[in-house]
Design a protein around this nucleic acid. Structure first.
Lengths: 178, 178
DNA sequence: TTGACATAGTTAGGTGGCTAACTATATGCT
DNA sequence: AGCATATAGTTAGCCACCTAACTATGTCAA
């Protein structure tokens, strides 16, 4: 799932950033503004998607789990694999599956070969829920992306890719000297 | 604060999307891929920022609250204003402030004029925490953004802005017919 | 002036994240 | 065969988000 933080309504403007730059000389105002804008656009879109899904009682991560199951030829997977593909902990996945099970959108059976495993399967009701949600989702994504021409979209992808390659700067020991 | 969801490790590839497109003819594969990539880059950067902050015991939203306070000339604000500027509910802000107060990074005094109000103030300890965190934050943002030339960064901002203007497509009643 | 309405903040209860610690089952080495 | 280690899943307890309902205080107009 996509898990963001910071729903910045109020990104600092250049004036405020200048104040911070006075105290922290490392500050590069343009970099910070670009960075925060990128985060904000992603965060707002993510919130928009959520509110769309909420209209179908599909809170956040549960939708993604259903999609992961639908991708599989036998509509099945295990909690561990789902957790890995969704990028959440196994503990979180337990909670998501509990909720989906309560609404009977998935079923669970104990594994035969490996008795530690549990097999999660998309039910007919789960598939029906996706059939209800997905057309509107795709329509909205199309509408959103019509903001860009095809060339612009490719351009955006390539710019994002350049940034994405440096995503590890925030980790423990980035090489900070260029 | 920036609040994302979905930490998609596993964005569907073109082949999987084709499978979905067979069932849901609305699907425009390029649009969906661009959309999910944008969300993923934002989400991963947001997670990176978080893990950086976690190294300083500054969990997520609390950092943003400290920054909002530091912006103010008197280092002070009220829970309501902070909630609005951070884009969270007043209830959430109550919880964040409780945590910050426990660590003495802020102080709270009852308002004199309006006795419903509470005045939140950045303490010296809170300022010291920011002084510890911010230089490394700015360094990392700079390093990240050096992935783009100045022209590319401006280009990115303008592309994001075009998408941002359509952020309401996910809301209740978007005009879906062009 | 008093009663209706609005605003500030908190509390309760739900979701969705996390880590750490636990149980149960496999696996694999000696 | 038996023990160490690894893996699957759950539980407990924390943080950060939400809405709805509540208390206390202000405001304003009849």
């Amino acid at each position: 799932m996509l898990t963001y933080m910071l729903q910045v309504k109020d990104i600092p403007n250049a004036e405020i950033l200048q104040k911070f730059a006075d105290r922290y000389p490392q500050t590069d105002i343009k970099s910070v503004m670009t960075f925060l804008n990128l985060l904000r656009v992603g965060s707002d879109l993510s919130h928009g998607l959520n509110s769309y899904l909420a209209g179908y009682d599909l809170l956040q991560g549960r939708w993604w789990v259903l999609l992961l199951l639908m991708r599989e030829d036998d509509l099945s997977s295990t909690p561990s694999l789902l957790a890995e593909k969704a990028g959440v902990s196994r503990a979180t996945m337990t909670g998501l599956l509990d909720g989906l099970l309560r609404e009977k959108l998935i079923s669970r059976v104990h594994g035969r070969r490996d008795r530690r495993q549990i097999l999660i399967r998309l039910t007919a009701k789960g598939q029906a829920k996706l059939d209800e949600v997905m057309p509107g989702y795709y329509q909205r994504v199309n509408l959103l992306m019509q903001a860009l021409t095809e060339t612009e979209a490719l351009n955006l992808m390539s710019l994002l890719e350049k940034i994405y390659q440096r995503r590890h700067v925030f980790e423990d020991d980035p090489i900070l000297n260029k």
